[in-house]
Computed example of a mutant assay.
Amino acid sequence: MKISIIIPTYKPGPYLKDCLESINNQTMNKKCFEVIIVLNGVIKPYIECIYNLTKMYDFNSVVIPTETPGVSNARNIGLIRAQGEYVCFIDDDDKISPSYLENLYYKATPNNIVASNVKAFYNNSNKTENDYIASAYEKLAHKNAPLSVLKGRKFMSSACCKIISQKSIQDTRFDTNLKIGEDSVFMAEISKNVRNIILSDKNA
């Protein structure tokens, strides 16, 4: 297995279908990745809805319910289950472009993180805007060279929008005591195992 996609979700709305639809539209062979959905906090009636959603698609998936709420706990559960060489964290209200997984995996090496371009959208609109990570991407992508963790530190503020090797993660887990900033702490802890940050193609 090349990539394990970990999606934490809490009381998911219709946006989860959009997220899974974008995963189903990937150009990467579906046998090369798995999708781990961790439903945390409130289980019913959401669990049946998620099971029904996953039946619509032909990628490998597993749904794990936990009554313990929190994105950190959900991601940690996903990490325990993950079989992929690389891990890709996706939030349940994210959508990824068709070439996302294929492009990030093509550029990946065990000691590097591949970070994607990012666009913000609102209310399921097709209109997109740059956020702070997109601004950093536009500033640095033209150099077409690996970035040090220091120079690419804005990309280390979030666990999403990238793929990370299991070799870099090792036994590191998200701190379940933190309510904000848990991504930054997790990324800081694995940074000692990361040589460079590589940027994806712009359309990924």
Score class of each variant (00 low, 15 high):
E48C: 06
C49Y: 14
Y51S: 11
N52D: 15
L53C: 08
L53P: 04
L53G: 04
T54G: 06
K55A: 14
K55M: 14
M56V: 11
M56T: 13
Y57C: 09
Y57L: 08
F59R: 13
S61Y: 03
S61V: 06
V62P: 00
I64N: 07
I64K: 15
T66E: 10
T66S: 15
T68F: 11
P69D: 04
N73L: 07
N73W: 11
N73I: 08
A74T: 11
R75I: 14
L79F: 04
R81I: 05
R81M: 11
A82N: 10
Q83V: 07
G84Q: 14
G84L: 06
E85Y: 08
Y86W: 14
C88T: 08
C88K: 02
F89K: 02
D93Y: 02
I96R: 01
P98I: 12
S99F: 10
S99K: 04
S99N: 15
Y100K: 06
Y100Q: 06
L101A: 07
E102K: 15
N103M: 07
Y105E: 08
Y106K: 15
Y106C: 07
K107S: 09
P110Q: 14
S116F: 12
V118Y: 01
K119Q: 11
A120F: 08
F121H: 13
F121P: 05
Y122A: 09
Y122P: 03
N124C: 10
N124D: 11
K127L: 06
T128S: 04
T128W: 04
E129F: 14
N130K: 05
N130Y: 01
D131C: 00
D131P: 00
D131Y: 01
Y132V: 01
S135W: 03
S135V: 04
A136E: 14
E138C: 01
A141K: 09
A141W: 06
A141H: 11
N144R: 07
A145L: 14
L147M: 14
L147S: 12
V149P: 05
R153G: 03
R153P: 02
R153V: 05
K154F: 03
K154S: 13
F155D: 00
F155S: 00
F155C: 00
M156G: 08
S157I: 12
A159N: 03
C161W: 03
I163R: 15
I164V: 15
S165E: 04
S168H: 07
I169S: 09
Q170V: 13
D171Q: 13
D171N: 14
T172D: 05
D175M: 03
D175E: 13
L178V: 07
K179M: 10
E182D: 09
E182A: 05
E182L: 05
D183F: 00
V185T: 08
